[in-house]
Structure formats: structure tokens, C-alpha cells
Design a protein around this nucleic acid. Structure first.
Lengths: 142, 142
DNA sequence: AAAATAAAAGAGTTTTTTATCCTTTTATAT
DNA sequence: ATATAAAAGGATAAAAAACTCTTTTATTTT
């Protein structure tokens, strides 16, 4: 469904939201451990998300990653788009570039419904709602 | 959503169904052209599907690929499973192996609905129903 | 101001996926 | 029987994705 990179990204953002809900920051090493991902790899991904404003970071002692108010309002769909692009929300299920409403592939209309529901679901899931004290330690690992 | 390999596979099977609905066979070169895929690559994929009984082939002059009655009754879900496995139908949206009903990830329940609809949609889409004289030439290319 | 710390950036490497090439086998027609 | 056409199989190459390491830059603490 999503690339591995994208899965890590979503898990990391949820983790950061949970860990920094009362202010503060969380370091890359803790994030990697918290979501069971390769440290240097998730670091790259977060750099990218940071550049795109989907999360924030500061360097130096007491530095780390966190989410500002705007970032908290973003949805998981925004994360997915930032990492994997919007093909999963808009692209043809059979990979046909010319497939469209007026020129549909054999499963276009059925597929459209699924894609739409997926999009809506992920649009609705705002980062800020994942701050409940869930058992993150077990939930976001492997 | 699906791997490129899987997209080619589904397109090829639909193409074969359409081309051989009145009997006969279709050669790999025509299939490759018909779905705009690399010839040797789709050949490999079809070998695999043939081994799994999802389609048939014969060698020699007048040989080619075709679908017997059983193959016609298979669904697109069967093709997808044969190529990409069933992870898309069963796996966690965040890639968490331990995610389950009793130990759900943050988006488990919402995701489940999407996966189920996707599965049902593809289960319902039987290969034999794609034999209508659709404008395959334009539809399954690129 | 210097040292320590933590992320950012850049430059690889490895693994997986996708694609190509070439030889062998098999079925059919002549 | 022989020639031919087509798939099967094995081996390799190219591209993309996943992952690692090193250097740089910014910030804080002393």
C-alpha cells in the first residue's frame, strides 16, 4: 500500500505527537527506538518532512523534533502525500496514466470509491488526535 | 498500491481474456504490445501465473496464452495475491507486524474497512467478465 | 570563547525491484 | 524427420528503494 519510508514517516509523526504533547522535544535516537526503524534512515525522512513544514526541529543540546500548532493540524494524508506523492489517492489501480473519468480502465469506477474512502479516512486523521496516552511502546514498534 | 509487476499481471490477464474469449491464443509479443509492457518482463510474470494455474499456455507454432474455464472464474484478487501476496488485504497500514484486532495500531479499525472493501471489490471482479469488446487497444496501454 | 551536543547535509553502500538478453525446451506443421 | 514458432528458464544489467556513515552547522552550556 505505502512505501516502507512512508510507513516509518507516519509512525514517527504519531510517535512525536504522543511524546511531545506536553511540550518538549524528542531526539532521533528515541524516535528510531520508539518506532523500531533504522536510525539514520528515519533521520533522512524527518529532515524531508521538516523542510516541508510537516514537523519542526532544533539542533544542539536540548534539541530534537516536535510539532507546532500547524503541524498538529496536518493529517496523515498530508504525510503520505509528502512522502509517497498523491498517486495512491489519484492514480489508476492498474497503473494506466491515461485512465480517467471519460476514459476509464476496466476497474476505474470501483477503484475510485476505494481511493476516495482511503483519502477521506487519512484526511480525517489529524496528527493532533494521536496524543492520547496510548501504549505507544508496544503499538508503534514492528 | 500494487507493484508494477502486479499491475502488468492484471492488465495482461484482462487482455488475454478479451483477446481469447472466442477461443484461440495470444502470443507474448501481442500481449506486451497490447498492454504496453516490456516483453520479456511480462513473459516472466505470465510464466509464474501459468505455473500457479491462473492461466494456460502452449508452446510451438500456433501456441500462446489463453484462459481455461477455471482461469476465467478466477478473480483479480487471485492475480494480485499470486503476484504481490496477501499483505495488501491483511497487513497493517503502518507496516506493524504485531498489529491485530486485539492489539490494534492507531488507525487499525479505519484501515480494516478500506482493506475489506478493496478485497471484496477485487474478489467480485472475475476475469471472465472482462471479455466485452471494450476498446482494449486504448484501455490497457500506458 | 571553547567544548559538547544534536540535527542537517552529503556521500556512499546494499538490497530489492524492474528490465533485458540469450539459450533451451517443446509443440506444431510441413 | 525436419524446420519453425513459441514459451520456459537461467543469467545478467539497470534503476529504484532502503539503509549507513561521515562531515558540517547550529545551539547550548560551561
Amino acid at each position: 500500500m505505502f512505501s516502507k519510508t512512508c510507513e516509518y514517516a507516519v509512525r514517527a509523526v504519531i510517535f512525536i505527537a504522543q511524546q511531545t504533547k506536553d511540550g518538549g522535544k524528542v531526539g532521533i535516537r528515541d524516535i528510531a527506538k520508539g518506532i523500531d526503524s533504522p536510525e539514520y534512515f528515519i533521520a533522512k525522512i524527518l529532515q524531508e518532512l521538516s523542510r516541508k513544514g510537516l514537523l519542526q526541529s532544533t539542533k544542539g543540546p536540548n534539541g530534537g523534533f516536535y510539532l507546532d500548532k500547524t503541524a498538529m493540524k496536518h493529517s496523515l494524508a498530508d504525510i503520505v502525500k509528502a512522502v509517497d506523492g498523491d498517486n495512491i489517492f489519484l492514480g489508476c489501480g492498474l497503473g494506466l496514466k491515461q485512465c480517467s473519468e471519460s476514459h476509464p480502465c476496466p476497474i476505474h469506477h470501483e477503484f475510485k470509491k476505494i481511493r476516495k474512502q482511503l483519502a477521506q479516512m487519512l484526511e480525517k486523521a489529524k496528527v493532533g488526535t494521536f496524543t492520547a496516552e496510548l501504549e505507544v511502546q508496544t503499538f508503534l514498534r514492528r
